Amino acid sequence: MHAPLLSLTWTDHVTGRQGHLVVDRLVRGVSSGGLRMRAGCTLEEVTGLARGMTMKEALHYDADSDSGAPPARYVPLGGAKGGIDCDPRDPEAYGVLVRYLRAMRPYIENIWTTGEDLGLSQDIIDRAAAEAGLVSTVQAVHPLLTDEAEARKRLADAFAVEVGGIGLDELVGGCGVAESVLTALDRAGTDHVGTRVSVQGLGTMGGATARFLSRAGLKVVAVADIKGTIANPDGLDVEALLAARDAYGTVDRTALRSGDRELPGDAWLAADAEVLVPAAVSYAIDSANQSRITARWIVEAANMPVLPEAERLLAARGITVLPDVVVNSATNAWWWWTLFGDIGADAEESFAHTRRSMRALTGRMLARAEADGTTPRTAAHAIVAERLPVIAERFGWYR
């Protein structure tokens, strides 16, 4: 892979905490990638995430859209990522966020579009961005829009939509993860109903994934949050757990039913389930703890949760990893489908478009892996390797 276009580390003059920005690539002069905040966030981590965003953008580009089907209004951007080394629960965290955004203002105004990621909600980022003097965290893309005012209203309207008490912007990512799971089950001839799932993390991505999978008939038997793992072999009441969680995805234990058990934090790994969904931190599955996993599929709802050596060991045991660059890519794509006008500010239209796109993308990846005799991740990377030169030829690296 190429070296990133831009890589920088910022030090907060008030607290001494550090933040990072990596722009992996520009397409049409713009890059896309969220901003995360967690204690221990490193430049290496952000670099890997930025490269992943380049791949996600490329995977959602239909190179043949201009020959046959009506062309999509959204065409890909480059990949980027921001990260701040700070616990988001720290009393100083919000001030650090505002100062980071103020320092990154020239990049956000011109080349980097960003939004919520691990540890930060869009509401908090928007509030901090306004305090930092920004018009929007996606203002760098505004010059590419046909009608900026209409596009911004459409996105704002979409963010105002709620379904079952959860914002549409939170749900689309989980809808995409769930569709990846269902596509894999269908290709394997496995019934949806009764297939057991264990989820690490009940925040934005994990919570929405649990909702869509349970509504598809799968049985969520374990979920993990910062306090530990909640398990029930007969299936958890997902909606009750979602209603009892705080802004960080931590579940109020008074909401548990008599059959629900509280287990150690890492018990989700060894849950008796066919599908394992790491939906929280990066590097959650390593070469040591992978031996505890008995699931048939690991579905990366989080970014980079499975380390490379662990994935090699899992593959040798016949366990398939569905990679993050495909599985969790719907959130980013939904922003752009909405902003550019490929879909409106409507939940059912958003879910239908997400399901259709993610089923096609996951199916293409799995078919490529089967044809080439490789892993799904290798297949996804091969698809990216074919598409990036086409994107560079059509849109340039920088312009």
Rank of each mutant, 00 (worst) to 15 (best):
W335D: 06
Q290W: 03
P278V: 06
L43A: 14
V306L: 09
T354F: 06
T54N: 07
E45A: 10
D237L: 09
V299A: 00
A222Y: 11
L213P: 02
H381P: 00
A39Q: 14
A333L: 13
A210M: 12
M205K: 01
T9D: 03
T183Y: 10
A240G: 12
G265F: 00
V275F: 01
R317Q: 11
T9R: 13
N328G: 05
W268H: 08
E92G: 08
T204L: 12
D126R: 11
G217Q: 07
G33M: 00
G173I: 05
L185T: 10
P389Y: 14
S214G: 15
D12M: 09
G19I: 00
L213I: 11
M358A: 06
V75R: 14
R296K: 15
G83S: 04
T42L: 04
G95P: 09
P106D: 03
D123R: 13
E170N: 12
V181D: 09
R73C: 09
L185E: 13
A392F: 13
A270T: 13
P4M: 08
E179I: 02
G79K: 06
A255W: 03
V23D: 08
D234Y: 05
T331A: 15
E162N: 11
V135N: 03
W268Y: 13
G164L: 03
G19C: 08
R394N: 05
G79Y: 09
Q139H: 01
L155Y: 11
L120A: 06
D12H: 09
A63V: 15
Y398G: 01
W334K: 04
L366Y: 07
T42K: 04
S350W: 01
A231V: 02
